[in-house]
Each structure stands twice: as structure tokens, then as C-alpha cells.
Amino acid sequence: MRSILEITNLVKRFADSEILHIHHLVFHEKKRYAFLGENGSGKSTLLKILAGVLPADSGRIAWGAKGADFAYIPQRPYCFHLPVWKSITLGITAKNKQQKKEIAIAALDEVGIGALADKAEVYLSGGESQRAMLARVMLRERQALLLDEPTSAVDYEGCVLAEAALNKYQSQNGCMILFATHSVEQARRFADEVIVLQNGKVIAAGSAEQAIHDFYAIRTGLS
């Protein structure tokens, strides 16, 4: 399996304290990785650095042959004063207005909010807007999706729909999905591999079951 992303000795500091230090991680195509950890463990910072939103202080980020071909959803994405269908097709230039609306509605249907296509995005609820963001990234052919707590405000039914839509997207284009979550259940259910972060460092990584087992062992102090 081809590697899509490799991180080596990545360091981020705020003031004088080191808030992130990743020694080495490799991510492969067609796989799903979950960053699991408590608040302030460095999940969002790492995703922001990978997305180019935040600069790293040192280290190396090497994207695969296609370069940095990714879509990123921040933890608090901005909701535009635009109808949802227009907002999620921003930057898509190859199609006319009618075609754009059709593909937008199809993508929104996948995540269960097709009926909200004409509503202004700024008036969506938290869960609805997160689903719209997922529809937005799935409208683009990218080799990597970087998702920062993409379903934290979505109800269980919506989560299942969103995960099914992401499954379908991945099976169609073979991308790598990297997502941050607080939910151990979601990590177990949706990720192939889990990377557990604590104080900016990887404390466990591997298959979902193994990493989650290690995570609980560390938290409870059991070896």
C-alpha cells in the first residue's frame, strides 16, 4: 500500500512550551486513522499543521506523489451567508449553476440534509452544519481528508449516515481519512488505526483495538 503522508520530528511550540512533538508517523492510502485524545492533547494542532493553517516550528511533512492533495474541515468551520448548496460548491468551477446545485443536493442527501440545500448555511444547527461540511469535502476528489471532530455535534443517526457516506467516498476514490475524535466508540467503529495523543506526544498507536486497549491501560495506570 502506498504511503500518502509521512511526518518526521514535527514540533510546535507556544511561548516556550512544546505543545506537539511527533517523532514519526506514516499514513497510507485507503486507510482511516483516528487521532484520539483528551482536550489539549494536540489533535487539532497537528491537523492544522498538516492542513497548512498553522506553521510548524520544525520537522518534516512529506506528502506522497500527488503532493498535498487534501481537504480539511476545521473544528469550528465557518458558516457562510450563502445557501448551503452554494456554500458547499465554492471553488467548483467546472460545472454550471444547475449542475452544481444537483451535485450539491446529491451530496447533502448522502448525509441526510438534502432538504436544507436552499437554507442559508449560517442558520444551520451545529450538527447540520457539520454534515454540510462533510458533504462539501466529499464533492472534491482528494487523496486525503483531514477532519477535525467532524461529527462532534451530530446525533447518532446522523453519525451513522455521515460515516456511511465517508465509507462510500473512500471506496470510490481510495483516499486516506485522518480524523480527530473524542469518541472511543467512533474510533473503534470507523478507524483502521488509532493514534492516541497525550500532551502533544503519541502514547499509543496501532490497530484500533490494540491502541484503544493501550489508551485505557495508560489512563487507568494498569500495565
Partner: peptide, 22 residues
């Protein structure tokens, strides 16, 4: 927040400025 969202979609500088002003 607008720049985080637009850079995540790799929309380009021109689109970023247009969206911010809008």
C-alpha cells in the same frame, strides 16, 4: 475561521479575499 475553512478547501487567494469581503 474563514481562512481556516477556505484553506482547507484550497480555494486560492482570490476566492479567500472575495469571501472575506462578502
Amino acid at each position: 475561521p474563514i481562512l481556516e475553512t477556505t484553506r482547507g478547501l484550497r480555494l486560492g487567494k482570490g476566492a479567500e479575499i472575495r469571501l472575506i469581503l462578502r
